[in-house]
């Protein structure tokens, strides 16, 4: 009697199963990455109404983060500078530049500038900047090296898992107060020791990992 099925069909179910399994794993992996903030949010670099360059102001001119983002040590919200902060210099420096036309207009008319927000966590998450700055978490730890950015891009996913990675293991990210705005700081060799001492000095135990720490 003729064989209905060719020989290779013996192995076909096995290959199909393995193939399906692998495909499933690959699909899951792809979704895991591409649907996560690691892909969807990292690298987000929207165009801003005014071509403000952090590279020029921070790296070249040496402005500290807190010169403009004044709320960072006292408030949950770091904030953006009011138009007046820009105009403090730019009513003299490059006072006629085309790039600053919107800024001058804003100052003259009293209508604020509408910047596009880059770093955002969901509305049900209550992030507090001051709590982080005051224990020594550096700006660059979450925002990347902003001093090298012409246009601000999101450097880290700011997802809950990523936050917890640090919250569960903060020692590598605690800096001395003077280094908080240093964009190129790397943890020294004695970081563990330093972190332990710092925690005692500031009387901080572990960072909060309870739900209501951020979700209220």
């Amino acid at each position: 009697m003729a064989q209905i099925f060719p020989k290779w069909t013996n192995k076909a179910p096995l290959y199909a199963a393995v193939g399906a399994g692998l495909t499933l794993v690959v699909v899951v992996g792809l979704v895991w990455y591409y649907a996560s903030p690691w892909y969807t949010d990292v690298g987000y670099r929207p165009a801003q109404p005014v071509p403000y360059s952090h590279k020029v102001h921070v790296r070249d001119l040496g402005l500290d983060c807190r010169f403009c983002h004044t709320g960072v040590e006292t408030s949950p919200v770091a904030g953006l500078p009011p138009t007046k902060t820009c105009m403090n210099c730019h009513n003299m420096v490059k006072a006629d530049s085309d790039k600053l036309a919107l800024v001058r207009e804003s100052f003259k008319n009293g209508t604020p500038l509408e910047w596009v927000r880059v770093h955002k966590s969901p509305d049900y998450v209550y992030f507090d900047h001051s709590a982080h700055i005051n224990v020594g978490v550096g700006c660059a730890s979450c925002h990347g090296n902003v001093a090298e950015m012409d246009v601000v891009a999101q450097h880290k996913p700011l997802s809950m898992g990523w936050c917890l990675d640090c919250h569960r293991n903060p020692d590598d990210h605690i800096r001395p107060a003077s280094e908080v705005t240093n964009m190129t700081w790397t943890p020294p060799t004695n970081q563990a020791e330093f972190a332990a001492k710092q925690k005692e000095l500031l009387d901080i135990k572990a960072p909060i990992t309870d739900c209501t720490g951020c979700h209220r």
Partner: peptide
């Protein structure tokens, strides 16, 4: 999403 700071 926009962030709208003060003018002054």
């Amino acid at each position: 999403e926009k962030i709208i700071p003060y003018v002054v």
